[in-house]
Amino acid sequence: MQISFTLNAKPVTLDVEPATLVTELLREHLNLTGTHIGCDTSQCGACVVHLDGLAVKSCTLLAPALQGKSLVTIEGLQGAPGSNQLHPMQEAFRQHHGLQCGFCTPGMVMSAIALAHAKAALTEAEVRRGLEGNICRCTGYQNIVLAVMAGTAAMHGAGSGE
């Protein structure tokens, strides 16, 4: 079947098998390998992307669901439109050492941005709860939590590019 959607701000039209997961579409067909697959039970969150601005697990999303929607992946984040700068949330992760092996990071950053969009100032408890669908094995979460709080403040202090 044919689907049309916006991928990282660019229009895309593709032929897909309906039985295609969005993770597979991104990784195998569109060569966007930043969206990761860490489990098969929709628990880990390494695959989180934004669908019309909402954080969703792309491993639990069929390609036809993209029809007419806007999809943003980790590769589509920018500090400012057209720039090579990191998005403020990415920069906050870097500044706070909120990543180690990097595997959970794309999903973690996408979830964090969605949290920040929902609320301008996040408490530690809100961030911890907001990340309940993202598992990290390396960091013990402490620096991730600090990064998300700082990234949220930065996003609301200055304009974000997404």
Partner: peptide, 9 residues
């Protein structure tokens, strides 16, 4: 229910 990404879908 679930987690935020699950609640979004």
């Amino acid at each position: 229910i679930g987690d935020p990404a699950v609640r979004d879908r």
